[in-house]
């Protein structure tokens, strides 16, 4: 029994990582119909901004603030202005391909300037192990889970219960009508990119102590988060949490009870099953264009 609890708890912790990154996928899709295939690299990059700050002598907390500010400017505002705006008018597919190119550029850029080796990254949450019903739970994992859930709740509140959030949703559903209604469409879209940049910075601070700061750390993370977003429902922020946690737990159970060698195939099998039987995702709602 304690084995099962341990597997579920550690699966939830890993799933929370995926969820935190997947939230960005769903947010950008919900508000601007953008699929960002560089989302994994968006989580990788802020850690390097922060490491650069620490190397310049900044304390960790200041490096986090500076790194987040730079990320908001580059991964939020500049990303939207320089890449999304010119590409989105040609449709979602060219933009998706452009973000793939961006992910390669980001990886190569970090490798060029920071080297190819993994760097240790300090943890904001002290790594203390708690024992619960025979299972060992790390405070880092609990922190990740708590931040993931809090981020979803905050975003749900913002999108559904505030004027700005409703304007963002209206912008996503029909920008022309939103504009006629007097909604500042450009500003609303910009908000979603800035929120995504803040989210990836938070994810970066929490995830990098586990993943290590490395130019390639976004590869696995981005793919897993993308699968989590589809499984949970691409058009529901709360779907990201469900998809992420389901993926984390499935991976652990598969490794333990099926085979360690075939573990990486199981999440893909889950993805196929969802696409076949519930293409809008477990919590998603059917819409004209389903991802």
């Amino acid at each position: 029994m304690s084995t099962l609890i341990s597997l579920i708890v550690s699966g939830c912790a890993t799933g929370a990582i995926y969820a935190l990154v997947a939230i960005g996928f769903t947010l950008l899709w919900q508000t601007s119909q953008t699929i960002n295939f560089a989302q994994g690299e968006f989580v990788m990059l802020p850690a390097f901004f922060m490491l650069a700050g620490m190397n310049m002598g900044m304390p960790f907390w200041l490096a986090i603030l500076v790194g987040t500010a730079i990320s908001v400017a580059i991964l939020g505002a500049a990303f939207k202005r320089a890449l999304v705006d010119p590409m989105l008018r040609h449709g979602a597919l060219p933009l998706a391909i452009a973000t793939m190119a961006l992910s390669i550029m980001m990886k190569e850029g970090v490798k060029e300037f920071y080297g190819a080796e993994a760097q240790p990254f300090p943890s904001l949450i002290p790594a203390i192990d708690l024992h619960f019903l025979g299972a060992t739970i790390s405070t880092q994992s609990l922190g990740l889970l708590a931040v993931g859930v809090a981020a979803v709740l905050a975003l749900q509140y913002l999108l559904n219960s505030t004027s700005v959030g409703r304007q963002m949703q209206a912008t996503a559903q029909n920008p022309n009508v939103a504009r006629i209604l007097g909604i500042p469409v450009e500003r609303m879209v910009m908000y979603s990119f800035i929120i995504n940049a803040i989210l990836v910075s938070v994810a970066s601070v929490l995830v990098t102590p586990l993943y290590l700061a490395k130019f390639s750390s976004g590869e696995t993370l981005g793919l897993a988060a993308f699968i989590a977003a589809i499984v949970g429902g691409f058009n529901q922020v709360r779907g990201a949490i469900l998809g992420g946690i389901l993926l984390g737990i499935t991976d652990n159970l598969a490794a333990t009870y099926i085979s360690t060698q075939y573990r990486s195939a199981v999440p893909l099998a889950l993805l196929i099953a969802v696409i076949l039987f519930r293409p809008q995702g477990l919590l998603g709602t059917a819409e004209e264009r389903t991802v």
Binding site: T3, S10, L210, E219, T220, N252, A255, T260, R263
Partner: peptide
């Protein structure tokens, strides 16, 4: 006898098998 993947991040299930 546990096979793991290159780039694997979560070793919880593998270590649990070792422990058991």
């Amino acid at each position: 006898d546990l096979s793991t993947e290159a780039g694997q991040v979560d070793f919880a299930a593998d270590v649990l098998k070792v422990k058991n």
